[in-house]
Computed example of a mutant assay.
Amino acid sequence: MTDDRIQTSDDRTPTGSDRTPTGGARTAPSAPADDARVRAWVREDFGIALDRLDRVADGADEAATLWRGTAADGRRYAVKLSGGGSPAGLVVTARLADHGLPGIAAPVRTRRGGLWSEHAGARLTLVPWVSDARALDDGAMDAELWVAYGELLGRVHATPVTDELARALPKEEYRHEGLTAFVRDVDQRLRAAPPPAADAHHRAVAAEWGAAADRVARLLERADALGVELRARPAAPLVVCHGDPHLGNVLCGGPGRVWLIDWDDAVLAPRERDLMFVLGGVLYFAPVGPREQRWFFEGYGAVADPDPDRLAYYRTVRALEDLAHPAVQAADPDRWPEAERVAALEIVRGVLSPAGLVEQALA
């Protein structure tokens, strides 16, 4: 066993998120964990014996490994070993679920009452596996589910910010220096002469990046300018935000019910931090149109005009993240398998496409 410490929600202060504006490169667990070892950790830390553990490939978090675990009684769990992000989302979901908010899956507590344990330099968490139906599946999100999605996010934003949440959650500061440094490093590497070992995927992503160099430079300038402007303003009201509520993090739970999962990026921020994912969306293959927005706000409630500068800032930062991280994956044959590099290259192309987030951010 690499690390037998068990954390509770009060044992440490979260250090930030891999998707907040300060995020740069993510941190992977210090050592790979085989399935047998993970099952042993779950049994020892949470008192649950898993008969089966299946790795899940969905998701873009390179700092985490996700499994679907099945216990002898048939109950299923999302088992996650994460070396990035912040444990603040565990504190938030535990509180929301304890107060009866539907659509929130509470983390399973350890035998010592904690929300996670630590192994291999990463957090081990266990959450009930609530649904196999993804909102991104074709035809999954009808009008009733869009309304339910709006209701759920509205209730999250209306959550009173207790002292516990204020201590646990990072606060929006419109800072992105870590991300800027990361993007500039990627820019330097991909625009340099390709190394002798460069393969077709490296050359392809370098070509895509080089063709977009002017747009990347404009995004960096835009993020800096907007950050300066927003930091100089009077502070906006901060609410509990999920931080990454695109449809890939929404599951369908039957008629009129949705689940909001993957709270690693939870943050105290203006509501535009989350609404950006509905006002246009961030996924080039799943844009959110006026009809879906109308359904969403039927559930969410009336909102005064969202601040355009905050929306622009969040779109710009997200565009840089969604472009730079998969570009690194596509270019690196030593760390990433072929299939993941091919998928990462397609993401880069999608983010740069006319329907992609780069064009949205620069519009």
Results as ranks from 00 to 15, higher is better:
residue 222 R to D: 01
residue 226 L to M: 10
residue 216 V to P: 07
residue 221 E to P: 00
residue 234 P to V: 11
residue 222 R to I: 01
residue 231 R to G: 03
residue 233 R to I: 05
residue 234 P to L: 10
residue 222 R to T: 03
residue 233 R to Q: 15
residue 220 L to V: 11
residue 243 G to Q: 09
residue 217 A to N: 07
residue 226 L to S: 07
residue 245 P to C: 11
residue 247 L to K: 00
residue 239 V to C: 10
residue 219 L to H: 05
residue 221 E to I: 00
residue 230 L to F: 02
residue 228 V to P: 01
residue 216 V to C: 06
residue 231 R to F: 04
residue 239 V to N: 07
residue 244 D to M: 13
residue 220 L to M: 07
residue 244 D to S: 15
residue 235 A to F: 05
residue 242 H to L: 10
residue 226 L to P: 03
residue 216 V to W: 08
residue 234 P to A: 15
residue 222 R to N: 02
residue 233 R to G: 08
residue 213 A to E: 06
residue 223 A to W: 01
residue 215 R to D: 15
residue 228 V to D: 11
residue 222 R to H: 05
residue 238 L to I: 06
residue 247 L to M: 07
residue 248 G to H: 09
residue 247 L to A: 13
residue 227 G to V: 03
residue 229 E to V: 02
residue 227 G to E: 02
residue 244 D to K: 15
residue 241 C to N: 15
residue 247 L to F: 00
residue 229 E to R: 07
residue 221 E to K: 08
residue 220 L to Y: 04
residue 244 D to P: 11
residue 232 A to C: 09
residue 248 G to W: 05
residue 237 P to E: 13
residue 223 A to S: 14
residue 237 P to G: 10
residue 231 R to C: 03
residue 244 D to C: 13
residue 215 R to K: 12
residue 246 H to A: 05
residue 217 A to R: 09
residue 228 V to A: 14
residue 220 L to D: 01
residue 218 R to C: 00
residue 226 L to D: 04
residue 231 R to V: 06
residue 248 G to V: 01
residue 225 A to W: 00
residue 235 A to R: 15
residue 242 H to K: 13
residue 221 E to D: 15
residue 231 R to A: 11
residue 246 H to S: 05
residue 227 G to K: 09
residue 214 D to P: 01
residue 213 A to S: 15
residue 238 L to P: 09
residue 245 P to F: 08
residue 232 A to F: 03
residue 246 H to Q: 10
residue 234 P to F: 11
residue 228 V to S: 10
residue 243 G to F: 12
residue 220 L to R: 06
residue 234 P to I: 05
